[in-house]
Design a protein around this nucleic acid. Sequence first.
DNA 1: CAGTATCCCGAATGATACTG
DNA 2: CAGTATCATTCGGGATACTG
Lengths: 121, 121
Amino acid sequence: MGETTENQQLTPEHRELLDQILDKWSLQVLDQLCGQSLRFNELRRAIPLVTQKSLTTTLRRLERNGMIERVIVGTRPVAVEYRISPIGNTLQELIDALLDWSSERLPDIQQARARFDAEHG
Amino acid sequence: MGETTENQQLTPEHRELLDQILDKWSLQVLDQLCGQSLRFNELRRAIPLVTQKSLTTTLRRLERNGMIERVIVGTRPVAVEYRISPIGNTLQELIDALLDWSSERLPDIQQARARFDAEHG
DNA sequence: CAGTATCCCGAATGATACTG
DNA sequence: CAGTATCATTCGGGATACTG
């Protein structure tokens, strides 16, 4: 606390990365894969409103960034399991922190929204 | 560690909130307002590529969610200062943690990307 | 200065059909 | 089952012009 806390700069590179792993669907996928492996259609059922295409895109991007791992189970038809990776696991803690934060602050935020909506049209 | 860590659920309400404050422009605005008040055009100049419209939209949404405060300085023409709010300040720590995380993990992630890109087309 | 109001286009998303 | 391919659509963002 006595030190000047050295804040990181938000470079384009960081921003791009965070954009790719903190977006709407990615958060829900990572949330689902927290602690359990799931197959494509299991994920699809677990995440309301996601389309096949959006889910595929999201999974590919998360895999490309090393956040999740795609494991092919060579059964007939063929099964694919998705699970969190070691890197992704380190991100989980931060996402949990964000969820804790939003749980804690949501009442204040809803109040702020109500006040804003009342003051403006 | 001995306890089962009780993970928060990512409800639609939480997801919507995080979507509104962790998006591309919001992160950059919050980053800029960390530790200093800035005016509209100062923000605009500080954030490359942002348009007037996108900046306005972002600022309104952050204000509505109680993350920033809009202070009208009643000079002639009129000046408006934007600054981080108390709630927004609690979010700053988490954003800093995300930036630290991405700085730390970026090499691994770039390696994962290279491997993915090599294995796929 | 700090916006609002329009128009408009391209990227992202959805719907549908098909495949290893 | 786990996708890919294609087409249709929407919608956020950009460009531009105007205002308190």
